[in-house]
Computed example of a mutant assay.
Amino acid sequence: MKGLFYELVCTDCNGSGWVVWGSKLVLSSDELVTQLSFKLQHAQREISALKGSPLMSGRQSQFERSNRLGAGGTNYTGD
């Protein structure tokens, strides 16, 4: 909540900001823990997917990754 001079913690939702969609009902503590767990699991899946997938593709990846085809095992790009 926005007070006159500073922000106050919302007493309705205990500062979580999570309410039931379409109404002003507050989520119970059990439901809040469940929903936050779902969000955390989703974020962890997104992070692991981004770590596993190559961010570079095409010609750029040829310059960024070492292919050890050059002299002394250096990166050879063909230019």
Rank of each mutant, 00 (worst) to 15 (best):
S66N: 14
G73T: 06
G22R: 06
S28N: 04
G70K: 07
T74H: 05
S16A: 01
R59V: 08
T74D: 12
W18F: 14
A49Y: 07
S37H: 08
F5N: 08
Q60L: 14
T74R: 12
F38H: 15
G72T: 04
P54V: 03
F5E: 11
M1W: 04
S37K: 14
Q44G: 03
N14S: 04
L55M: 13
C13K: 10
N14E: 08
E7M: 00
V26C: 04
M56S: 13
G72A: 07
K51L: 06
S28H: 05
L32G: 00
H42A: 14
P54R: 14
E31K: 07
Q44L: 15
F5R: 10
E31C: 02
Y76C: 07
D30R: 05
E64N: 11
R45Y: 10
K39I: 11
L69N: 12
D12L: 03
T11N: 10
E7T: 00
L36V: 05
A49R: 14
E31R: 06
C13Y: 03
T11C: 05
L25F: 10
F5I: 03
D79G: 04
Y6D: 09
E46R: 04
V26R: 01
V20W: 12
G58I: 12
L69R: 15
N67A: 05
S57V: 02
H42Q: 12
N75S: 12
E7Q: 01
S48P: 03
L40S: 13
R65D: 14
E31S: 05
L50G: 08
L32Q: 02
S28P: 02
W18E: 14
E64I: 14
I47E: 13
Y76D: 13
D79T: 02
S23F: 03
F63Q: 15
H42T: 06
V26Q: 01
L27Y: 07
K24V: 01
Q60F: 07
G78F: 03
E64D: 14
E46S: 09
N75E: 09
L55S: 12
F38V: 11
V9Q: 03
G70T: 11
V19Q: 12
T11W: 08
G72D: 10
Q41K: 12
S57G: 13
S66H: 07
H42N: 09
Q44C: 11
A49M: 10
W21C: 08
G73D: 13
L32P: 00
S29W: 02
R59T: 03
Q60W: 07
G22C: 07
K2Q: 11
S37L: 12
S28R: 09
G15R: 11
L25Q: 13
F38L: 14
M56Y: 09
T34H: 10
N67E: 09
P54A: 14
E64W: 15
L32V: 00
S57C: 12
R59E: 10
N67R: 07
N14T: 04
V20S: 09
T77M: 03
S29Q: 09
G78P: 08
R45K: 15
R45H: 11
W18N: 09
K2M: 06
A43C: 05
V20A: 11
K39V: 09
S37Q: 14
F38T: 13
S29D: 02
P54G: 10
L25G: 01
C13F: 02
L32N: 02
Q44K: 15
S29A: 06
Y76S: 12
Q62H: 05
L25N: 06
T74V: 05
S61D: 01
I47M: 10
R45L: 15
V26F: 00
R68Q: 12
